[in-house]
Computed example of a mutant assay.
Amino acid sequence: MNPGRLGSIGLAIAFLSLAVPAHAATIEITMENLVISPAEVSAKVGDTIEWINKDVFAHTATAKNGDFDVTLPPKKSATSVLKEAGTVEYYCRYHPNMKATLKIEP
């Protein structure tokens, strides 16, 4: 193979690696001892939220604006992919004192 062509291929591969979009993050939110932790989370559209219920009773992650309503049986987890930017306040329907905020950036 021509050495000049090999250099061009290497340069093309280097540029392609820079053009690959960033991977979405997975963010863990835990419900334990009737507390949502962390109570405030920043994320981006496309990120995945992993809701983890460590309690012995069921919880929900219910958005006040209706964006999501995740039911979490005891000692189980679930995931949601964030689709829209904005600030979402949410709570547990079974334990309304459990409240948190999710700030989603574009």
Rank of each mutant, 00 (worst) to 15 (best):
M1L: 08
T26V: 11
S8I: 01
S77F: 00
Y90P: 00
D67G: 08
I13F: 14
R93I: 07
T30N: 11
G46M: 01
V88D: 01
A61D: 00
I29Y: 04
P74K: 06
V81A: 11
E84I: 07
E105K: 15
N65Q: 04
I49P: 00
K76S: 15
G10P: 00
E32C: 02
A61K: 02
I104N: 05
Y91R: 00
G86E: 05
K76Q: 14
I27K: 01
V70C: 05
Y91N: 02
V70A: 06
H23C: 11
T26E: 12
T62R: 05
A22D: 08
G66I: 14
I29C: 02
K75C: 01
A24F: 06
L11M: 11
A85R: 04
L102H: 01
A58S: 15
G7H: 05
L11K: 11
A24C: 10
C92Y: 01
Y91K: 03
F57M: 07
F57W: 09
K76G: 03
S37N: 12
M31H: 13
K83T: 15
V81Q: 14
I36T: 07
A25S: 15
I9H: 09
E89I: 03
I9K: 09
E40Q: 13
S77Y: 01
T101K: 14
K64W: 03
T48G: 01
K103D: 05
P74Y: 00
L102V: 04
S8F: 05
Y90M: 02
L16F: 14
T60N: 02
P73A: 14
R93S: 14
N97I: 07
K44E: 10
S80R: 13
D47R: 03
N2R: 12
K99S: 01
A22T: 09
A58V: 10
P73W: 08
I27G: 02
T30I: 13
V81K: 14
V41E: 03
G46Q: 02
P21Q: 04
L11Y: 13
F68E: 13
G7Q: 10
T26S: 12
S17W: 05
N2L: 09
G66V: 12
L11S: 14
T71E: 10
L34C: 08
G4W: 00
P96E: 06
S37V: 06
A39R: 15
T48W: 02
K99G: 02
I9F: 12
H59F: 07
F57V: 12
A61F: 01
H59P: 09
E32N: 08
K64M: 04
S80N: 11
S42L: 13
V35Q: 13
D67T: 13
F68A: 13
Y90T: 00
L82K: 04
A58G: 15
I13G: 11
T79I: 08
E28S: 15
N2W: 09
T60L: 03
A43W: 03
A78L: 02
A14Q: 15
N97S: 14
A14H: 14
V35C: 05
D55T: 01
A12T: 12
N97L: 08
V45H: 11
E28Q: 14
A78S: 13
E32V: 09
E40A: 11
K75L: 09
I27Q: 00
M98F: 00
M98A: 10
A22E: 11
K76P: 00
S17I: 07
A12M: 12
